[in-house]
Design a protein around this nucleic acid. Sequence first.
RNA 1: GGCGCCUUGGCGGAGCAGUUACGCAGCGGUCUGCAAAACCGCGUAGACGGGUGCAACUCCCGUAGGUGCCUCCA
Length: 463
Amino acid sequence: MKLYNTLTRSVEELKPLNPPEVTVYTCGPTVYDYAHIGHWFTYVRWDLLVRTLKAAGYEPAWIMNITDVGHLVSDADEGEDKLEKGARREGKTAWEVAEFYTKDFLDEMKALNILEPTHITKATDHIAEQIALIQTLEEKGITYVIGDGVYYDTSKFPQYADFARLDLEEQEAGKRVDFNPQKRNVSDFALWKFSPKGQQRDMEWDSPWGVGFPGWHIECSAMSMKYLGETLDIHTGGIDHIPVHHTNEIAQSEAATGKTFSKVWLHSNHVLIEGEKISKSLGNGIRLPDIIARGYAPEVLRLHILESHYRSQSKFSWDSLEAAKNRLDRWKQAAATRWQEPNLPRTNDDISAPDFEEALTKTLADDLDTVHALQLVDKVADKALAGAVCGACLDSIVEIVEDSLGIDLTVANITEAQEQLIAEREQARADKDWKKSDELRDELLEQDIALRDTPHGPIWSRI
RNA sequence: GGCGCCUUGGCGGAGCAGUUACGCAGCGGUCUGCAAAACCGCGUAGACGGGUGCAACUCCCGUAGGUGCCUCCA
């Protein structure tokens, strides 16, 4: 299996530490607001990574975190954290805000048929681990304490700029934000923040340095190492995480252990809406419920997401969502022919389920080439619609598509009563009673069964 | 200001130095009670200007436009 590794900026053969296990850590959402489709582009892609690992014979151990504390509104470590801010906005406690949006996230994740990770870990459940990791860093002399918290001294980690290929000198010269003047270096970041004096936060904990809360980056280091060990096989996240969050994770983890933190880093590119990135200020954050409200099933969005490569900057539009819907409908029509074997001449020359599975797996294992994987399904659908795939083969193929791509093509058989209607219509047609045959067709249509007449007899599909 | 990336037909979106990407939409034909499908075929895409090749959408340089990061962000 080959993947594009951000660490080396090249496509590499995956070499897990302890095969067949593959450890995967995915940076999850900060639960202070609803997820928009940009999030779902990313998480569907990592779901596909895990499915592909399984198909390739690996046994993925997949951790996704939930950031429910400590994500400050600014990377300059200024301001309050997002949960507390969300709480003030909604008149709730930070705990209530986190719970609400976590549940919403998990519900939508399920709706999109994203596999359940091995563990979903909340930052607030792992405060002790985070404190312990900060202590380790402190013992190694790479932290320092200033007025508002404990900081990581990035000058003590010479490789700091390597991962993101940052030019720290340039950044310093061109910096656009003020930063805490007590910090030793612009790139230094908070490991632990003190609760503001005289202010009661919803979320705060005792620590060796004082009451406060963890910085944003430390949770991922602490939790990934707790569940998956000191060196991960694969770490995933949004492309935006490269310069700060992942850079800081590497600095924390590798300074603490002296080992490589993750062998492979995967980054999902952003999706644009009308040529612009999704952001709060533009108000273009389309959500899954918006898509459902327009009559598109979640799986349509899922298919649309798979229509572009995870490393390319994708575009979202309602037109392309409509195209994805049509494509999916066509696949389902093809899948429905599995029940109709007697009507069709089965040649079954060139499509066998094992061959299809092998081709699909091979394509996906090539750096998650979903674009061409979908093309393989198109080809099978063509043949099925032409009646050239046997019912049992389609059963297997539908299952393979479900497992590999997470797209469910299962189509229920029609009832005996419906079958009877089709038979009656055939009789009417034989009698050239076109009025009756059209009425029967309309009756079936009301039951969401569409008919098309082929040289081999009528073929139905669900609409 | 610094560092990147992108620019493909009506839309989405790939590969490739010389053979059809694919999907959606469209057009013509065969077939057809009608409808739909199926089958056959079509539209002669590659931002612009140079360059290197026998040959460039596909490599190099430049121009234009767009966009991402260096704040938050998937």
